[in-house]
Amino acid sequence: MANPHSQIATVDPVWDQIKRDATQAVADEPLIGGFVHATILHHATLDKALSYRIAAKLASNEMSVMVLREVVDKAYAAEPELVAASRADLVAVFERDPACHRLLQPILYFKGYQAIQAYRVGHYLWRNGHRDLAYFFQMRVSEIFGVDIHPGARIGMGIMIDHAHSIVIGETAVVGDNVSMLHSVTLGGTGKEEQDRHPKIGNGVLIGAGAKVLGNIKVGDCSRIAAGSVVLEEVPKCKTVAGIPAKIVGEAGCDHPSISMNQLLGPWTA
């Protein structure tokens, strides 16, 4: 007798919506049909589509799509949390970026989303002793997307990097869950020290465009860093900092700055 459970189809509302978006995109613009089919519609699951997309973007004469895809597939199979993180990141972009109107868009077009997924595979390789392969992923992500994240950095789930040009995140940096940052953000060191030397960003933090957070300092949960700021000292939770060097200028203004994406200093500014 056949196993009745084998007849039950796996329900995946996110992937089903992505496929509907893809089908509609091809109907609206037939010229991208080959691209959309190769990237989305030829795959049975989201992780297979992401594996193909990452491999296709990072491939070069030095390493083929086939080899890179095998690396990503093995990482996803060994650590399902990578796929869970990719879903959380996808929803974060869809909910926070006003330019994102379909779940399909980040997978196809948004380099911030694509770069963070490639970083996640590189971080998996780093933690599992494949350091040179992890460096290769870092190099290609930097070359292709203009996003330089050391594979040793630890980054949580629900991350949204908008525009994603000139992002730099150092080796010992830690980024919590549900963080949003804009282009030209640096989470860097302050010298040549080799130990724990990079920032620790809490959950729910919003980091504005061009902000630089330097040194082994903590940025508290649900805080805001104004665009163009240079942060050299610890930031308490639920505060807004601005300036060079950055100073506390008020409260964060809401419970979840990274979700509201409100970057105005507001009437509470000192």
Rank of each mutant, 00 (worst) to 15 (best):
Q105Y: 03
G129N: 08
G253H: 00
A25W: 04
I32P: 00
D97K: 07
H165K: 08
P13G: 05
R53F: 01
I40F: 05
Q17K: 15
A270P: 00
P199C: 08
D97P: 05
G122C: 08
A226Q: 14
H130F: 10
A27T: 14
E81S: 12
K19G: 04
K247H: 01
I259D: 15
S51L: 10
H37E: 14
R127N: 15
P4G: 05
L103H: 03
M1R: 11
A153V: 02
G204W: 12
P80G: 12
Y52K: 04
M181E: 03
G156H: 10
D28A: 15
M181F: 14
M1K: 04
L232P: 05
A77P: 03
R224E: 10
M181P: 03
L90G: 14
I159W: 14
C254H: 03
V235T: 11
S142K: 12
A99W: 03
G152R: 01
V147N: 07
E234F: 03
I201T: 12
R224L: 09
I259H: 12
V235F: 04
E143I: 02
S166P: 01
S64R: 09
N128G: 07
P151Y: 02
I169Y: 06
N3A: 13
M66I: 05
M160E: 13
I244K: 07
H198E: 08
G250F: 00
I207Q: 07
S180H: 07
A118E: 02
I116P: 01
G220F: 13
R154C: 09
A226L: 08
I225S: 07
D12S: 08
N61M: 04
D21L: 02
E194N: 07
L214C: 10
R69I: 01
S229I: 08
C100V: 15
I225Q: 07
E234Q: 09
N216Q: 10
Q195R: 11
K111N: 00
A115Y: 00
F94C: 06
S223K: 06
H37N: 13
E70N: 11
V71H: 10
D73R: 09
V121E: 02
L31R: 15
D47N: 12
L182I: 05
R87M: 06
V83P: 10
A56Q: 09
E29D: 15
D132V: 02
